[in-house]
Amino acid sequence: MSGSGFPEVVATLRRAGCVFAEDEATLLIEAAVGDPRRLDTLVAQRVSGTPLEYLLGWVEFRGLRVGVRPGVFVPRQRTTFLVDQALDGVDPGATRACVVDLCCGCGALGLSAATELGARGCDVELVAADIDPVAVDCARENLTPLSAPVFGGDLFDALPGDLRGRVDILLANTPYVPSARVSQLPPEARDYEPLAALDGGVDGLDVFRRVAEGAPAWLAPGGRVLVETGAGQVDTARSVLAAQGLTARAAESAQHYATVVVGTRDPR
């Protein structure tokens, strides 16, 4: 395909089943920076199933280009709704906020939330954590401009103890696909992304339960934990949050095909 232009790349991607072939062709041509051989390689990798974001080295999330690399979970556009819910719950006049991005992956949630709160004039203390060393390294690169630390470890075990009782917003993009359904995921996810970021256990809520159990001790009075789930998991997820003494609610977005459950600590 060497020397081919936009129409040829579009046709190749379309034959491979890429739904947004025109958009992808534009991005791959830009990434190849006028190098036909490089373009051939990128197109061949994309046709073989490699996620577009791995080839580009970034994903757009809420208007930001967030770095990603092979082996790191690629944040989904539906998860922008989780950040919407987090930001909507912050008083417009708030001058400070402590934000934790747990199971942070590349750090997109924390980065976007902190950036947008900062644009409001809110002083944000952002901390992120993940159990996967590849994700930790990726998030550190993305969060360096904010001077936000990223810790490696298992959920709350990774966080510094002085955050206990101070977290205003706890973002936790936990895996929620039931184990039996992981094999049904699109190949881009199933074959390339880390299993630990996808497989949520028998009913998809194993990691969520652990987050809900630990959250009350880390949340500030009135602080919130926000987690994305499947629509069919809402009732169970709300019950889990309520059992930990949190006020539970759910929000759904038809536009984003997204469901978020929120647990709020008593403000007193």
Results as ranks from 00 to 15, higher is better:
residue 70 P to A: 12
residue 264 T to G: 14
residue 87 L to T: 03
residue 86 A to G: 05
residue 44 A to L: 04
residue 12 T to F: 03
residue 153 G to C: 02
residue 89 G to H: 04
residue 183 S to A: 11
residue 49 G to F: 02
residue 108 A to D: 03
residue 12 T to C: 07
residue 92 P to K: 01
residue 89 G to K: 06
residue 196 A to S: 14
residue 17 G to M: 07
residue 160 P to R: 03
residue 135 A to P: 02
residue 114 A to E: 12
residue 236 T to H: 11
residue 250 A to K: 12
residue 122 C to A: 12
residue 42 L to P: 12
residue 98 C to V: 10
residue 44 A to C: 06
residue 158 A to R: 10
residue 251 A to S: 07
residue 96 R to D: 15
residue 199 D to G: 02
residue 61 F to C: 01
residue 162 D to F: 01
residue 60 E to S: 08
residue 39 L to G: 02
residue 74 V to D: 00
residue 11 A to R: 12
residue 84 D to P: 07
residue 123 D to L: 03
residue 204 G to P: 08
residue 255 Q to A: 15
residue 146 L to F: 06
residue 258 A to R: 02
residue 210 R to G: 05
residue 100 V to G: 01
residue 115 T to Y: 09
residue 88 D to W: 08
residue 185 L to Y: 00
residue 194 P to K: 04
residue 163 L to I: 14
residue 120 R to Q: 15
residue 72 V to N: 00
residue 97 A to C: 15
residue 46 R to C: 08
residue 158 A to V: 14
residue 17 G to H: 02
residue 108 A to Q: 06
residue 26 T to E: 13
residue 85 Q to N: 11
residue 264 T to H: 09
residue 119 A to I: 06
residue 111 L to N: 13
residue 71 G to M: 04
residue 157 D to W: 06
residue 75 P to M: 02
residue 125 E to H: 10
residue 245 G to D: 07
residue 64 L to W: 04
residue 72 V to T: 01
residue 110 G to N: 11
residue 122 C to Q: 11
residue 65 R to N: 09
residue 34 G to M: 10
residue 9 V to D: 13
residue 212 A to S: 05
residue 108 A to M: 06
residue 76 R to K: 09
residue 219 L to W: 14
residue 31 A to Q: 09
residue 115 T to S: 15
residue 101 D to A: 03
residue 216 P to M: 08
residue 40 D to T: 01
residue 121 G to N: 03
residue 9 V to Y: 10
residue 253 S to W: 00
residue 152 G to A: 07
residue 182 V to N: 02
residue 70 P to F: 09
residue 113 A to I: 11
residue 235 D to C: 00
residue 76 R to D: 04
residue 213 E to F: 08
residue 106 C to K: 04
residue 255 Q to N: 07
residue 221 P to D: 13
residue 60 E to C: 06
residue 225 V to P: 03
residue 10 V to F: 06
residue 48 S to N: 09
residue 139 A to Q: 12
residue 212 A to C: 10
residue 219 L to D: 12
residue 255 Q to T: 15
residue 237 A to K: 12
residue 162 D to T: 11
residue 176 Y to K: 06
residue 249 R to P: 03
residue 91 D to C: 12
residue 35 D to W: 02
residue 196 A to P: 01
residue 132 D to Y: 08
residue 238 R to C: 14
residue 220 A to V: 09
residue 75 P to Y: 07
residue 164 R to F: 04
residue 7 P to T: 00
residue 16 A to L: 06
residue 22 E to G: 13
residue 84 D to T: 09
residue 262 V to T: 09
residue 122 C to Y: 11
residue 229 T to D: 10
residue 221 P to W: 13
residue 7 P to F: 04
residue 217 A to Q: 13
residue 230 G to P: 05
residue 209 R to H: 11
residue 241 L to F: 12
residue 54 Y to C: 05
residue 212 A to G: 07
residue 8 E to L: 00
residue 95 T to G: 05
residue 110 G to M: 07
residue 243 A to D: 15
residue 52 L to H: 02
residue 51 P to F: 00
residue 167 V to A: 11
residue 23 D to L: 15
residue 92 P to Q: 11
residue 4 S to W: 10
residue 5 G to C: 10
residue 66 V to S: 09
residue 39 L to T: 00
residue 77 Q to H: 13
residue 178 P to H: 14
residue 265 R to H: 12
residue 181 R to I: 00
residue 44 A to V: 01
residue 142 N to T: 00
residue 64 L to A: 04
residue 65 R to F: 02
